[in-house]
Write a protein that binds this DNA or RNA. Structure first.
Lengths: 335, 335
DNA sequence: TCCGTGTGTTGAAGCGTTTCGACAACATTA
DNA sequence: TAATGTTGTCGAAACGCTTCAACACACGGA
């Protein structure tokens, strides 16, 4: 292994000088700088990460804590991950993978051994058992998702309330006056999953604000129950001309159910989904997407900010983006 | 931070003694051992990873090099990853994530700075530009996939030839005598992707061995061309009673095409797929799966073996496993 | 001429481990 | 009893880097 001493000898300077050239923490004359740089290049020198970590007590590594539990949408997760990794690299940080199955143990170990400078925790739930742990360890952390109490934390999430509202606004602007909401399976609401409720709340509030009649129902993820839910929405509100769907699994059955009930999309009933973009793209649905890249990037930036001692807000909510597609159209006043 | 010196002081021994308790590299009296252990527990001591890496020139970290290029099947990739991470943890190793977009640069940096002890490279192609790099760096590596020349490397892969053969054998055992093969899009064969050819070769050889008439065709991934390919297979070989499909994207259209041509699965034509297990499960297809967990685990075990100086074979091929499902049935001799 | 003020460079002291050689203390053999 | 192992422990020297205090030097101002 080629060390800083080798470089120093080769360039005819002191090791400390080489260090200062590398870190730029002191002014170095242009001559020495280029001389040292040349020696570094020639010898193929790379600073030893461990030694550096020891000396600076900074590992330049952040832990990425992934859930990998069943039910996470992998393509979206991967987009988080790549965005986070890319952002990390921009700040000369590397990423250590910590899977959730390593559990509390893993977090503590990684934190205690100073292997990482901070934690990026993905897919945080309303009542996440990792949160108390993260409060204990020395390293700062940023969470993607929104636990019940964000005080003292740094969290990033999509503004689901705004997302629900955005759907209503879009439909209202198109002239719709009676809108239905097809939600997640009821078990999700029972589990207090946070984002589901918040979307609903945002939807409901926006409807009230715009003077729009709204009806909401949960939906399970098989054709039969989607059909039942849609039928009962239409029965409750026969004038319904638009549907907001917040349920990835049900999405595939919605168009079919509507067709089975004699309604065409978008002419009779417009549909807006809240779902990963690729799903919406595939089915040609107007949708509010989960901005995975943006979330991953933001989270990492916030983490880096905290590592550099900058204060950060406990909760950063990203504004929803709506992409118009074939499933919505202006409401034409029929003769 | 609590250091080994703190522990030593607390336990009334020398730092080196604590170290020996931790590593077990010298015999320590039971009394001191428990005393030291107790102090460690009490003070919540964790060895500093950087310091350890510096002293031992072993980071206890392996790099996981992911492609993340479009077209990789993410659920399968994730199963690789979790299996690899789990295996790594069993050997007290952590996993650093290196995405391919960091490219050669990233590999060199991570290797040069001694951040990792080895590389686990996923989704290696026949002519992979990472391979020459890996030969240069000091750390050993294990590849999942099979590049053109494996000499001096350590590679793990599914035995695709055997997989092709396994399908034939299964069908032959059921009494089928005329079997078709629906392959990947022709562009894949042109690209020399290795595994596609090897599957074909295995299929063809097994058919010859069993005295079975076989016809093979590539298939694109839209309904029209799948239909065309299936029709032309049936025209070439009207007595065909079974189909081996090695094309994830086409899979969805196969049953429909057969139905459109008046053939029922499995009564008229049996189907065996070579694809990720969940796809097969979902469509109830008899299939040979990609043993992702097994590959990830094996790869990590091999890497650990190499790190410990054990020699490893340049190529480890995992035997294919066939799961019988509803799409195959014994060939009944019709009246 | 002397003094302060920058600027560029250096030597040495850490950072927290591991590990080697040394050395007591005790047990075993001659 | 002396010589020889064996076992358990210790002190100190690495490992490769950063960083602080110190210093040499040149510069302009009194």
């Amino acid at each position: 292994m080629v060390t800083i001493a080798d470089v120093a000898r080769h360039a005819g300077v002191a090791p400390s000088t080489v260090s200062y050239v590398l870190t730029g923490k002191r002014s170095i004359s242009p001559q020495t700088r280029t001389k040292v740089r040349e020696s570094i290049r020639l010898l193929g020198y790379h600073p030893h990460a461990g030694a550096r970590a020891l000396a600076t007590s900074r590992a330049n590594v952040v832990a990425l804590v992934l859930p990998l539990r069943p039910g996470v949408h992998l393509p979206v997760l991967m987009r988080f991950v790549t965005a986070a990794v890319t952002a990390a690299r921009r700040h000369d940080m590397d990423v250590l993978l910590v899977t959730a199955d390593q559990g509390a143990q893993g977090l503590r170990r990684v934190a205690g051994s100073a292997q990482v400078d901070g934690f990026l925790v993905m897919d945080v739930e309303l009542d996440d058992d990792r949160v108390p742990l993260l409060r204990q360890v020395a390293q700062p952390s940023v969470l993607i998702g929104r636990p019940a109490a964000v005080k003292g934390l740094t969290c990033v999430d999509l503004d689901f309330e705004a997302a629900g509202a955005r759907c209503v606004d879009h439909l209202a602007d198109l002239g719709h006056r009676y809108i239905g909401f097809l939600g997640a399976p009821s078990v999700v609401y029972q589990r207090n999953t946070g984002y589901a409720q918040r979307t609903m709340a945002g939807f409901g509030a926006a409807a009230m604000r715009r003077g729009i009649a709204s009806t909401a129902l949960p939906a399970e993820d098989d054709y039969e129950s989607v059909l039942t839910s849609v039928r009962s929405l239409l029965r409750t509100q026969p004038a319904m001309t638009a549907l907001v769907v917040h349920n990835e699994a049900a999405l595939g059955w919605v168009a079919g159910s509507l067709r089975a009930l004699g309604r065409k999309v978008p002419d009779d009933v417009a549909v807006v989904a809240i779902c990963p973009d690729e799903l919406a793209e595939q089915m040609q649905l107007t949708s509010v997407q989960l901005p995975a890249e943006e979330l991953g990037r933001q989270a990492m930036e916030l983490l880096v900010a905290r590592l550099n001692g900058h204060p950060t807000a406990p909760l950063t909510l990203l504004p929803p983006k709506l992409s118009g597609r074939a499933s919505t159209a202006p409401r034409l006043r029929r003769a």
